[in-house]
Design a protein around this nucleic acid. Sequence first.
DNA 1: TTGTAGAAACATTCATGAATGTATGTAAAG
DNA 2: CTTTACATACATTCATGAATGTTTCTACAA
Lengths: 206, 206
Amino acid sequence: MVRKTKEEALETRHTILDAAEAVFYRKGMARTTLADIAEAASVTRGAIYWHFANKGEVFEAMMRRAIDPLEAISEVDYSTSERPLEELRERVLGVIERINSDPRYIRVFAIAMHKSEYVDEMVPVVDQCMECCDRHLLRQEQAFAVARARGDLPASVDPHRAALSLSVMIDGLIASWSLQPDVYSLDLAGGLINCFFYGLKHDACH
Amino acid sequence: MVRKTKEEALETRHTILDAAEAVFYRKGMARTTLADIAEAASVTRGAIYWHFANKGEVFEAMMRRAIDPLEAISEVDYSTSERPLEELRERVLGVIERINSDPRYIRVFAIAMHKSEYVDEMVPVVDQCMECCDRHLLRQEQAFAVARARGDLPASVDPHRAALSLSVMIDGLIASWSLQPDVYSLDLAGGLINCFFYGLKHDACH
DNA sequence: TTGTAGAAACATTCATGAATGTATGTAAAG
DNA sequence: CTTTACATACATTCATGAATGTTTCTACAA
């Protein structure tokens, strides 16, 4: 009903994204209408259409807002690392712990993995969201390769397969975890990774 | 345009489900309309409404047709098993191999896990589909417990956590696999499970 | 054996509501 | 006085489900 200052406008934008997050989580992407979001945010559809072009852009903005802070952790180079496996482990657990620290992450991951459909224009957006978990697949591969070169892993270990296996475990963990946060807890991750690395070192992955 | 015999009617039903499978896989559940399915099946919407009440029932029937044959493998009792871990391993790999044998499985799993939204009335249907992968979570727990009692696993192993970890890995594998069948191959599964069991035996999951 | 009633297996048409996007209105900030 | 930041109103599209029409099979009777 009233015009706002720029700061207030940015606040409404966040209000809209908060509402979208809640409604998406409850009803899923397809079944939530912009009217639902507007009602939850106590604004009109006009306000949403002012800030975003359509529902897809709302989703994208909601995701970006959540996962962009995670991106910073991704910058690594294992090539000169003294303990590549240790660093890899710490980094993966760091991301998971970070996700665990803010309930918002679990919600948006649940939306991206279970409450939206991986088709058409959603593919690149969801991809970016997932990549922030195992975007380092190449880097992981590097870590395993360096570890093998250093003699930390047996020569029979295939870095590519190892990285694939690791990201499978991470994706599975995040998927189960975001769906049932009370069943799957954070400490499963550490155990799984330890177990996997142990098996790798002893050449048990065949 | 013509009336059919009972056999022909059942054939149209299968034709509709085939078409639904293809269109669901391409466009996702939400964006496919019954008109799409009808066109792909070369029938009219009226035909679909004759066989099914709505799109949800089409989905459910499509899923049932695919996963019901998998259910048979699920009946196990590890309590008297001599080699519970071996049997568990073989059973899990058996399911995965079965899935690998028919491209239909990969498609319906991709639909269930990535091309549909886990909300409302979809929850029980998708659950049933997922349970056929790790429906044995309780049975797995039993297998681990029996193995521990037999001394095949160290006493420090928690059967419940072990079963959770295993199903996380399986879910993650099926999820990645169904999304990119060319990237993730079947033989990753065996290695992962071996690696996990090895780590379990050597008490490395902490 | 054949004729006929009824039901099964669809096709076609129609009415309705719901969601979208746009266009316009409006009040305050700059 | 112009633009921002919305609110309101409107037109259009589209998917659904029901209602109805049509054709063929099946059962049963004569």
